[in-house]
Design a protein around this nucleic acid. Sequence first.
DNA 1: GGCACTGACTCAGAAATATCCTT
DNA 2: CAAGGATATTTCTGAGTCAGTGC
Length: 601
Amino acid sequence: MRVVRLLRLRAALTLLGEVPRRPASRGVPGSRRTQKGSGARWEKEKHEDGVKWRQLEHKGPYFAPPYEPLPDGVRFFYEGKPVRLSVAAEEVATFYGRMLGHEYTTKEVFRKNFFNDWRKEMAVEEREVIKSLDKCDFTEIHRYFVDKAAARKVLSREEKQKLKEEAEKLQREFGYCILDGHQEKIGNFKIEPPGLFRGRGDHPKMGMLKRRIMPEDVVINCSRDSKIPEPPAGHQWKEVRSDNTVTWLAAWTESVQNSIKYIMLNPCSKLKGETAWQKFETARRLRGFVDEIRSQYRADWKSREMKTRQRAVALYFIDKLALRAGNEKEDGEAADTVGCCSLRVEHVQLHPEADGCQHVVEFDFLGKDCIRYYNRVPVEKPVYKNLQLFMESKGPRDNLFDRLTTTSLNKHLQELMDGLTAKVFRTYNASITLQEQLRALTRAEDSIAAKILSYNRANRVVAILCNHQRATPSTFEKSMQNLQTKIQAKKEQVAEARAELRRARAEHKAQGDGKSRSVLEKKRRLLEKLQEQLAQLSVQATDKEENKQVALGTSKLNYLDPRISIAWCKRFRVPVEKIYSKTQRERFAWALAMAGEDFEF
DNA sequence: GGCACTGACTCAGAAATATCCTT
DNA sequence: CAAGGATATTTCTGAGTCAGTGC
């Protein structure tokens, strides 16, 4: 009730222009839109501050299909004896059973949380029998799901086609909404099915039961005068509201972390495209401020105030190393990970001299998603001296920047530039790095394949800067070996061609006629071609090796201004499809519409 | 008037699925 | 040319950022 009242109040105030709501208050950029051919779809937003839409109509979310009990032949065993489970308990048992081969099921925390939550779903009699997970045998359940997956794989072409069409029908029915008169694609129109929570790293809640979401849990957001979505038969929505200061269509509270989950638009929608564009424009604006900001934080390294010094050193790391802001986390609620502001003394080591450099800082900590950040960086002397000072008389678990929070840092940044926050530095440095790398690596005379390789190299430099990692693909070793075999074969071909060329040369010397001359020429060209192919292959191998543990996708999708890539494609005659897949081109439609070959970030 | 909490949004790698390529 | 394996793309949902709110 109070929420509704507050929203109305806020709406009334925003109409009067008194409450500058956040993202929109920075305004949709337009001033820099100097590139040719900006489509009407990407014209300046007409809404007043904070208002995201005038009309929003949709079908509501699609719910997970109801649980299908196991066939009679699939049994669960306790202490070696088959136990027939109630439907509720059986459903949760299948969540575990199907994960049997997974590493999660070997982790003590996962097992403990699962068992604890599972027992809550059991009937009293079941709870009396099933008292230890170690005595549970899910192997038949596991096999059942493995077989089911295998059966799906070998379906006939017709059956596969049928499944595909069903998915498409679902997409058509639930996958779109109308926003301000335009049909827009929804990102995640399916409610997350129940299952076991899969936290990353050492998450204290891994294995907990993620309950099934019912219409009664779901809040719908749509315009008052639109066709209100129908809840599934016999059910009701938790609430239907009409808040046009937010972009979500439906929301529910997730049972493990007690956080809100949303149904939102697809990245290819106009709304998402505009915010992405705005994000890059903010980062581009930083270009005009960054020199001044840098000289200021350098000056602040010598500030009399400890708070200011800490802020200046932290900002230096955020700028130089592209660290994330690092909000505080409630301990016990999530894995122990940190970002810049939440670094602890134990995460840095100071080396007066290392790797032939002076004043080296060694970082070793777990960042977002428990991805390890390890880096040894030479820093300027005042930074080093400050770090020594910050670490003085502190224990390893103490905060390195004890006088700094992300809030105070961002407040400071906001004063330096409108719309500036810590994460803008990541966007800025990622994009500017791509632009510089492309400039340094691309040769106009290269083949398309070589240019794409250069692009991937540039992309990789950014991914490494942002510490975007992936697990080495399971197929890596094998595919690397295949490539090496190919290289070996090519080397032999080259050797063979070289020998033939030598013979042809001798032949020509002896004969001196036109025929032997043309044979010589042919052999020469063949050798050249093979050598080129060999070079290509070995470059490919290097590329593969270097990319083994680097994830390029995240930076490509979120940090690199797509206009840089599009301009590069145009300038060097590389088809844009070689760089962006179909969905990526849809996501970056705004950029394709406006970036010419002379675009500069 | 700082600070804990929370809502709404972006960004993250794994897993699932589709497509391509080889045999 | 079909099978099946490798690779590319898409989906999924967890994990961050950051400002507003209320005490």
